[in-house]
Design a protein around this nucleic acid. Sequence first.
RNA 1: GGGGGAUUAGCUCAGUUGGUUCAGAGCGCCUGCCUUACAAGCAGGAUGUCGGCGGUUCGAAUCCGUCAUUCCCCA
Length: 875
Amino acid sequence: METPKTYEPLKAEEKWYAHWMEKGYFHSVPDDREAYTIVIPPPNVTGVLHMGHMLNNTIQDVLIRRARMLGKNACWVPGTDHASIATEAKVVQKLRQEGIKKSDLTRDEFLKHAFEWKDKHGGIILEQLKKLGASCDWERTSFTMDPGYSESVLDVFVDLYKKGRIYRGVRMVNWDPEALTAVSDEEVLHKEVNSKLFYVRYKIAGSDDQWLTIATTRPETILGDSAICINPNDKRFTHLHGKQAIVPISNRIIPIIQDDYVDMEFGTGCLKVTPAHDTNDYDLGKKHNLETIDIFNDNGTLNEKGLHYDGLDRFEVRKQIEKELYDKGYLVKTEDHINKIGFSERTNAVIEPKLSLQWFVDMKELAQPALENVMNGNIKFHPDKLKNTYKHWMDNVKDWCISRQLWWGHQIPAWYFGAGSEDYVVAKTADEAIQLATVKAGRTISISELKQDEDVLDTWFSSWLWPISVFDGLTNPGNEEIKYYYPTNDLVTAPEIMFFWVARMIIAGYEYMGDIPFKNVYYTGIVRDKLGRKMSKSLGNSPDPIELIEKYGADGVRMGVLISSPAGNDLPFDSSQCEQGRNFTNKIWNAYRLVSAWDVREIEQPKSSIKAIEWFDAKFNQELAIINDLFDKFRISEALMAIYKLVWDDFCSWYLEMIKPGYEQPIDSKTIESTKDFFEQILKVIQPFTPFIAEEIWHLIRERKEGDDIIIAEWPKIKAVNQAVLDSFTKGEEVIINIRNVRKQNNIANKVKMDLFIKKNNEIDSSFDSVIVKMGNLSLLEYTETAISNANSFIVNSNEYYIPFGDSIDIEAEKAKLKEELDYTKGFLNSVQKKLQNEKFMAGAPDQVVVMERKKEAEALSKIAVLEEKITSLN
RNA sequence: GGGGGAUUAGCUCAGUUGGUUCAGAGCGCCUGCCUUACAAGCAGGAUGUCGGCGGUUCGAAUCCGUCAUUCCCCA
């Protein structure tokens, strides 16, 4: 049976993933080993895999696979998030297509539809992760609305309420008029848009024809105005102090107030104050005891306070009111204006600041340990610089609005028994609520009187418990698993959710476990397309990961997303990177083909092979130390690059070429065994990155006993590095490259053997001569006392190398080449000597540096001597 | 408006406490090769005022100031 010329990934991937699953290698149970734990950032339950997931999960898999090889008890917990707004929006949309309106359904009916949807689409993304090779412990798959999980969410709500950390209050919230729910500050995206600034004049009350002019971007909110505000220092408006103004159209009389909040430079210096519809105005309103006039319905249309605009959409009103203001002589002018507007992350609707009764978490004190323990390094961020962003947010942390006017999620465990604002209790179950309510009301409250809060909790109010609740740490505190796996080790996520999720997990960790939730946070970047645009479904610029896997193989795609993706930097993705990854797997495949095809005999081991083995052994260990260090620093893509070069350049281009027997020649058994040992070491090191091909070749290269799989093999241990061998090789390498250059410049085919004469002027290391002969395809390597005429020549370490080549040598060209090198060396010498003659340098520089400069000087001088002599000899 | 980054080769990025030829890597590009593992390959090669200007220093990609450009977060 012939081994195919190119690696065919798909079959191997299916085979080995099934094998790993069957062997239970991904499953972890607590034991004596050190635990290494990662909890997956749970994707939306109904989501599909996109490039961001690919990047994120590949990194996690690399970390977990390496930890497994390091002998740790590796546990990667997968799962999904119920994603209340996103999922509910999808279900509503699907029902609408079927002609069903959400408003026609009861809560229970709607939830039935939602669970059907979840059962149908939920977990698709987890199946896709398997194709990528993700070695998650699938027996531990969690969902934020699992019964046990839900229980812990409610426990935490009740607990925080009892501790006084949760309160209910009327606040300005970000209202999504499309989803009809409040959203958190973090779910609002601010974008710059071109809009208009409207200059509108208000008549001063009691005057005949005195006016003031305000500037606003939202003329429709005029109907909700409660005051005009001016800066008390503004000299232009001292005549307005204590006066009142008349609101256009509605003709209400409102006070003119003074506050230095007003920016005298912006607009006209007169600000209209609409406490119900602007966060800053709300604060002003509270400060000055202004009336709050809410003119909007929940869906963004105006209500009866909007007078004749009752029922019309806010944007339609903006158009119509412009005309009315103009017709009635109130509109002074309009100007083009760029301002930032908040959009809902989920529905893209323009967010309306709205006053409403919501539940909040008081964050100030909770945030303290979470801030401290990141700043003091108990939790490390990679890259470290993101600590600054974190600190800024935590220093200015605001209360967290946790109620959402949705049905899909954890229903808030608050129970109302009357119409008063305090007629409610917070309890996990209805039974408990009855008891509490009875006490609070001072009379017997029956179940029929009790009404549970209609709203659900923000999704992040459940996912902030993720590292704890996946191990039942709240419902079954102190259990064996939570003790063993918590705190987890590394978290891999996007900086976008640093506040939504990371910060809050740290808060919950301290509040409920008294400890950090993880030791390291690795922040990935945003995956962008070639034009630098964020990959998104709406732009349609995101490739389908599964198609990529089918085209390039999972290993190729894994490499493709990691190869240029340092922590915290965006990943400008192009499928050519997957091509590079696929080429790499193919390279390894062909190295295997080469090694497997040789005829092995009990013959003498060539000297060059002995040297090659010595060298690669040293080289491998040198690189392994570097790779381990890069892993420890979470420089994953650099570790990959180091491995890439180790395999491609050192192993394939140098080592295999050095030991490769001639065409149809056999290889000695010692060399082949050493080579297979090296190959195994290399497979181990690539296993975290390209697990499938590693496993495939692991089983092809040598007979394996049942259960001898690379996924659980031991990560190579570092042996002492023979630096002398590495140094000798470097010199030999330089000679070989020079020989290749001579061939190239003179068009001498590789198969033509050449002679090499060496005139020794300086110390010379001849230990790799046998390798030079082989790699240079030399018929002769000889040391000589005299220069050789009529030869190509080069200089390494002041020793002269000659390759005679009859008449075809171009003496002038050779001279020019030597002259050029001479000039460069003289210039170099000059700069070195300048330094050495500089008294300040000699006084200020450390000895080591001076010694180095002297050595450089000596080398340059000796090289110049050789070059000059050669040039003379050519004349 | 406030805060935080970033700026090094055509692209994506390394570059530790300022000091080895420190100006680097991968990709791309150029040249020559279908040399029996691999053309998804081999061998060789070129490319930079380290964003600008100023400063500190014997010495600056590295430290300081300033300007420019740009990204992110917050208001």
